[in-house]
Design a protein around this nucleic acid. Sequence first.
DNA 1: TGCGTTTTGTTCTCACGTTCACAAACTCCT
DNA 2: AGGAGTTTGTGAACGTGAGAACAAAACGCA
Lengths: 218, 218
Amino acid sequence: MARLPEYLRALTSLAEQGISVCSSEELAGAVNVNSAKLRKDLSYLGSYGTRGVGYDVDYLRYQIAREIGLTQDWPVAIVGIGNLGHALANYSGFGTRGFRVAALLDAAPERCEESVGGIPVRSFDDLDAVLAETPVAIGVIATPAGAAQGVADRLVGAGITSILNFAPTNLVVPAGVSVRKVDLSVELQILAYHEQRRAGAEELRGAAIAAAGEEQSA
Amino acid sequence: MARLPEYLRALTSLAEQGISVCSSEELAGAVNVNSAKLRKDLSYLGSYGTRGVGYDVDYLRYQIAREIGLTQDWPVAIVGIGNLGHALANYSGFGTRGFRVAALLDAAPERCEESVGGIPVRSFDDLDAVLAETPVAIGVIATPAGAAQGVADRLVGAGITSILNFAPTNLVVPAGVSVRKVDLSVELQILAYHEQRRAGAEELRGAAIAAAGEEQSA
DNA sequence: TGCGTTTTGTTCTCACGTTCACAAACTCCT
DNA sequence: AGGAGTTTGTGAACGTGAGAACAAAACGCA
Ligand SMILES: NC(=O)c1ccc[n+]([C@@H]2O[C@H](COP(=O)([O-])OP(=O)(O)OC[C@H]3O[C@@H](n4cnc5c(N)ncnc54)[C@H](O)[C@@H]3O)[C@@H](O)[C@H]2O)c1
Ligand SMILES: NC(=O)c1ccc[n+]([C@@H]2O[C@H](COP(=O)([O-])OP(=O)(O)OC[C@H]3O[C@@H](n4cnc5c(N)ncnc54)[C@H](O)[C@@H]3O)[C@@H](O)[C@H]2O)c1
C-alpha cells in the first residue's frame, strides 16, 4: 500500500514528541485519512494493536518499516547530475530512512571530474563497472526526457529492477521492473486546473448575482 | 482528471512528429492506458473526435490545454531557495507549458543577496509586498519540513490558493485551497517495498525448488 | 446512393477501495 | 469480580472507477 510510508512518517513524528501509544483516530487524524481505512490497512500487516488501548508507536513503527523493507538499507544510483541531480545528491533526507546514495553517473565527461557530497561522478558508460564495485538496488533518472528511455534500458540491462524517473516521459520497461514517475509539470497543471475551475465558479457566482440583481430590478 | 496532462504531453509529442490525426488506440498506447478509458476521459470534455477517423491532434491539444487552463500563463512563486529551490528556479521545463517563475523567496538574509536565473531572491518577510508587485497564482514550498506549515499559512493568508509542497509534511489548509505533495522518500519507499517483495518471492521460489529437489531425492 | 469498414461515444457490468457499523477484547474503577 | 468505557478488527453496504461490448456516425468506394 502507498499509504504505509505516510503512516510511518506520522508515527516517527509522534515518537519524537515522546508519545508511546496512540489510537487509530489520532494517527488517522495526523495523516488525514479515515480511521477505519487506517485500521484495515494495519490489520493487513497483522494484529499489532490492543483493543481498548491503541497501538504501541515504536512497535508499529518497526512493523511498518519491516513491511516496507526499511530494516535494510537501499543503495541508490543517480543518473544525470544536472540541476536536479545535484540537488538530489546533496539531499540529506535521503539517508535518514535507509536510502544511501551509492553512485552518481552522467554521460557528459566534464561532469565526471567533480564529486558531489563526497561521491565522485562516474561516466555512464562505465555503468557495469560501477555496479560491479558497489551494488545498487534503485536507479534514479534525472536526465533530459530524450535520454531517459535509453538510460532506463541500460539500467534494466544491468540488472536494476526499480527506477524512479524524474524526466517527463513514459518509460517502457519489461515486466518485473518497477517504475515510479515524479512529474513536476503534471502537478502544476493539476493545480492550474483547479485554480481555473475556482476562477470559473467565481465568475459564475458573479454572473448569478448579477442575474439575480437584474431579476429583482426587472 | 489527473490524466489530461499525460494526454497533452503525448499529443504534443505526436504533433512534433508531424502527425495531425490519431485514433484513441494510438494515443492510449502512447500513454499506456486503456483506449476506452481515454475515450471516456475525452468525451467528458466534449465531442472532439470524428467517428471512423479519430482525433485532430492540434485541435484536441488546444481543447485539453483550454480545459486544464494552459491557455493563460500561471505565475509561480518558489519559497525556500536551497538545494531543491535552486534546481527548480533554474528549471527550463517550467516555462515551456504556461508556467512562469515570478518570484523567489527565502527566509535566510544571505540568500536574498543572490539571484537565480535572472530572478532576485526576496525576503519571505516581504511576501505581501512581493505579491503586490507581481501577481502569483501558485506557491511552491521547498523549505525544510519544519517550516513548511508556517510558510503555507502565510501563503494562504496572502491569498494564494494553490500550493505545491516538496517538504515531507502533511499541510493543513482551509477548504478552497489546493495542495499537491511531491514526496521523494515516499516514492523510494514504495520502490523498496516492491523490491523487497520481489526478493521475498525469489527466496520462496528457491525454497520451493529446494523442497521439490528434496522430495525427488526422498 | 448504398454497403462495408473504421472509430467514436456510451451503456452496462464488475471489481475494487472506502466507509459505516458493530462485536470482540482490553483497561480501569468500584 | 463485574460493569462501564474504549478501541481494535472485520463483515457488510456503498460508491466510484475501470474494462468490455455495442450502437451510432463518418468515410470510401462502387
Ligand atoms: N531541474 C528541476 O527542477 C526539474 C524539475 C522537474 C523535473 N526535471 C526533469 O529532470 C530532468 C533533469 O533536469 P535538470 O534540470 O537536472 O537537467 P540538466 O540539463 O541540468 O541535467 C541533465 C544531466 O543529464 C546528463 N545526461 C544527458 N544525457 C545523459 C545520458 N544519456 N546518460 C546520462 N546522463 C545524461 C547531462 O550531462 C546533464 O548533466 C529533466 O528531464 C527535467 O525535465 C527537472
Ligand atoms: N534536495 C532535494 O533533492 C530534495 C528532494 C526531495 C525533497 N526535498 C525537500 O525539499 C525541502 C528543501 O530541501 P533542500 O535540500 O532544498 O533544503 P535546503 O536546506 O538546502 O534549503 C532550504 C531553504 O529554505 C529556506 N528556509 C528555511 N526556513 C524558511 C522559511 N520559514 N521561509 C522561507 N524559507 C525558509 C532556507 O533558508 C534554505 O535556503 C526539504 O523539505 C526537503 O525534505 C529535497
